[in-house]
C-alpha cells in the first residue's frame, strides 16, 4: 500500500505542481492565443493520423508476429519494439537518414519527383507513427496470443472463408486489445517530442505540435508553457477517461 501510494505520488506531484504554478489569471488569455489553438489542432491531427496509420499497418504486423515462432519471432519482435527503447532523437536522426533529401528512400524521392519530406506535417506524422506504433503492435500481439483459437476453428469448420473468419470472429474478439493498443499508441504520439523536432523541425502551424511549443515557450514565456502543458494534460485525461468508459464499459 505504502509503495503504491509512493508510486501514485510520483505521478501526481509534478501534475499538481503544474496546477499550483499555473498563472490562473492569464489562463483565458493564453488559451485564446492563436498559437495555442494552432499547436493543439496540429497535435490532435498528427496524433490521430499516426494512430490510424498504425492501425492499418500494425494489425497485420501483430498477426505476423503472433503466427511466427523461434528465432524469427525473436528477431521480428526486437525490431518492432526497437523504437520503444531508442532515444526519440536517435529515431529522428534515423528518419532523416531514411526519408531526408539525401536519405535511402528520401534521396530517390527527391531526385525523381522533387518530393521533400523533412519539415512537413507528413514528417511529423511519420515521426509519431515510428515512435508510437510499437505500443499498438505489442498490445494486439498479446491479445492474439491470448485468443482462444477454437472460435476461429469452429467458424472455419462451419464453412466461413478466411476473410470472413478474420472480420466476423477474430477482430471482434480482439476489440479490447486493439482499443487499448490504439489508446496507448495515440497517447505516445500526442506526447512525441524528440523524433519530431529532429526530423520534422519546428514551425508553427506545420510541425510545431504542443510538446514542441511547450519546449520553445518554456524559455521565452514560462507561463505560456505551463498553460499549454495543462491543456495537453486535460485533453489527454478527458479522452482517456471518456473513451475507456465508452468502449470497455468499465465503471
Amino acid at each position: 500500500m505504502a509503495l503504491a501510494g509512493l508510486g501514485l505520488l510520483l505521478f501526481l506531484l509534478p501534475l499538481a505542481s503544474l496546477v499550483v504554478r499555473a498563472p490562473w489569471g492569464q489562463v483565458g488569455q493564453e488559451l485564446l492565443a492563436p498559437e495555442t489553438a494552432t499547436a493543439l489542432g496540429l497535435s490532435i491531427f498528427c496524433s490521430v493520423t499516426a494512430t490510424a496509420i498504425a492501425l492499418v499497418l500494425g494489425i497485420p504486423l501483430a498477426f505476423v508476429l503472433s503466427r511466427t515462432a523461434g528465432t524469427l519471432r525473436r528477431v521480428l519482435r526486437a525490431l518492432t519494439t526497437l523504437p520503444m527503447v531508442l532515444p526519440p532523437v536517435v529515431g529522428g536522426v534515423a528518419l532523416l537518414l531514411a526519408f531526408g533529401r539525401r536519405g535511402l528512400l528520401g534521396g530517390p524521392l527527391y531526385q525523381l519527383f522533387g518530393v521533400q519530406i523533412p519539415f512537413t506535417t507528413t514528417a511529423a506524422v511519420i515521426a509519431e507513427t515510428f515512435v508510437a506504433m510499437p505500443f499498438l503492435v505489442i498490445a494486439i500481439e498479446g491479445g492474439l496470443r491470448a485468443l482462444d483459437q477454437r472460435y476461429e476453428e469452429a467458424a472455419r469448420a462451419l464453412g466461413a472463408s478466411s476473410w470472413k473468419v478474420f472480420a466476423r470472429v477474430t477482430l471482434p474478439l480482439l476489440r479490447p486489445a486493439i482499443f487499448s493498443g490504439a489508446v496507448l499508441c495515440w497517447a505516445r504520439a500526442l506526447g512525441e517530442f524528440g523524433a519530431t523536432i529532429t526530423f520534422a523541425g519546428n514551425l508553427p502551424g506545420r510541425t510545431q505540435t504542443v510538446p514542441l511549443a511547450v519546449y520553445i515557450a518554456l524559455e521565452s514565456k514560462p507561463e505560456g508553457a505551463i498553460v499549454l502543458s495543462l491543456v495537453l494534460v486535460a485533453v489527454s485525461l478527458a479522452i482517456l477517461i471518456g473513451l475507456r468508459d465508452r468502449w470497455l464499459g468499465e465503471p
Partner: peptide, 11 residues
C-alpha cells in the same frame, strides 16, 4: 529588408 519563409525554427 528581406522576408524569408523558414522551413523550421530550430531550438
Amino acid at each position: 529588408n528581406v522576408t524569408v519563409h523558414p522551413a523550421s525554427l530550430e531550438p
